[in-house]
Structure formats: structure tokens, C-alpha cells
Amino acid sequence: MFWLAEGLVYRRQDSIIHSLDPRVKLIISFSLFILSLFSSTIFEFTILLFAIFLLGALSKVLRRMTKTITFSLTFVIMIFVINLLVGYDLIFSIIISLRFIAIISSSSIFFLTSSPDELDLVMRSLHLPYDLIFAFVTAVRFVPVILLDAVQIIDSQRSRGLEIEKGSIFKRIRNYIPVLIPLIVQSIIRSEELAEAMESRAYGFSKKRTSYYTLHFKRRDYLILCLHFMLVVLFILLVYFFHL
């Protein structure tokens, strides 16, 4: 179970990509995401996935990215099979599955290389309402905490003789009740505690929040951004105008 968190969660690391301005990381991640949505040939996905994995390698998160993908493989297979069953041909089903993988892995680039604090700063630079930002960032921040809780709960219930993977499919679903209830209760308790702790530290008291860190583009950021746009334009030209 714990390996799951590894694929989703930010870890402090050193790499060229990590040290970029989070806005640049967001733009790169997001544009790859958009390209994944609009791509429709195996050739395009080969290039896209190559680019995504190259970025993953550069930011030293490749191993965890593949974890995320392995985890989502169940969905990929489901998508693939359903498409085939509904009557689409093989190539189309493969493309849909590749698109799913590309979407997941491109968006994971941002989340694997940007800390929740950076996410907070990026969303602020987009002038979103702070309550919304706070809720979103907190949700992201709590993913690993909740996963750890889940591990502890599963350990506790297994020590009381619960065998999650045993029985018919309905029995198995019922087996999750002793895990889900404590998980939900713990999360509610935690959110209440968090709200109280926030209020005791004057959350929402001043209308204008200041920030310890502010974002500044450096030369490196401009360079990478230019390079990125050039590659994207090249890709679009190749695919849409020269029909490669």
C-alpha cells in the first residue's frame, strides 16, 4: 500500500526540473497534458510519451512515475477492454489507453516536482480566491498522511484476523468496511483539529496575505520555457501541417 504514496507524493529532491520556477513546471506539464488530449495517432503518442519520460528522467522521478503508471494500469486495461467490447477497433483502443497514460504521467510531472508550497504560490499568482487555494493545497498535502493512516488501519484490522483478500467479490467489498470507517472518522477528526488550529493562528484575520517567498523568473526559467515552446511548435507543425 505504501508504495502507492510513493508514486503520487512530492519528495524534496535536487534536479534541473525541481529548481525551476513552479510556473514554468506548470506550463510544461499543462501543455503536455493538452497535447495528450488532442493527439490521435500512435506516432504522436510515441513522441509525447518519450518527451514525458525524458522529463521524468531529468527530474529523477522516473521510478516513481512508473509506479503511478503501474498503479493506473488496472484502469488502462479496463479502458482498453471496454473499448474493444463496445466495438472499436484495436488501434483505437490502444490509442485511448495511451492517451490515458499520457494524461496521467504528464500531470504527474508537476505534482512530483513541485512542493505543496510551490503549488500554493502558483495558484496565488493566478489570483484565485485564497480559501479555494488553501482547500486545494491542503487536500494535496494530506494525501500522504491519509495513506499512512490507511496503512496503520489495515495493519490493525489484519491483526484482528481480518482477511481483506478473502471471499467472494461481495465479501471482499464488505471487508473494506472496517478499513474505511476508521479512515473516514480519522479524516473528519483531523480536519476539525486543523480548522481549530488554523483559527487559533488567526487564519482569515487579514484580508491581504503576505508571503515569505515570492516567485521570480530567472534566466534559466526563460531559457527552458523558450526551448519548451520551440519543441511544442515543432511538434504541432510536424503533426498537423506535415501530417507525419
Partner: peptide, 20 residues
């Protein structure tokens, strides 16, 4: 785990992780 748990009872620190 169930087989061994019958002989070895583990009580974890946080009751919130088992009460349901």
C-alpha cells in the same frame, strides 16, 4: 497474518485506527 494473530495479539497505539 490471521493465523499468527490468533496466537499473538497486537494492540496498536491509536484506537482510532481500529474502532469501527
Amino acid at each position: 497474518v490471521a493465523y499468527f494473530s490468533k496466537k499473538v495479539g497486537l494492540v496498536f497505539q491509536n484506537p482510532g485506527h481500529q474502532i469501527f
